[in-house]
Amino acid sequence: MKIEGQMNNRVLSVILEGRLDTDAAPLLEEFLTENLPGAESVELDFSGVDYISSAGLRVMVWLSRHTGISKGFIRIRNMKSSVKGIFELTGISDMVVVE
């Protein structure tokens, strides 16, 4: 998975490309751990993600916990319908703002 991010006005924007699976999940968690300090919110661009497994979902749960329970903190953009379906099925969609 390719992960690229930048911080603008305390918003950490991250563009993801590839499969958010067992292999990629630890990379994303590591990237966020390194880059979150100083961020007031996170925007994840999912336009290049066509697959997510429970390992990827666990990163989303971890991120919501890590950042307190303020739902507005995590925003996900351009989610494909297959991935969105998994978010809804598991209730993870309630922990983030889906745009």
């Binding site: 497994s53 429970s54 390992a55 979902l57 666990r58 749960v61 971890w62 919501s64 916990r65 329970i69 998994i86 099925l89 598991t90 209730g91 309630d94 922990m95």
Partner: peptide, 15 residues
Amino acid sequence: LPASERDIGGLGIFL
């Protein structure tokens, strides 16, 4: 359940 109360396991078999 909200994130703070979610058991992080069990999602895989559920899916």
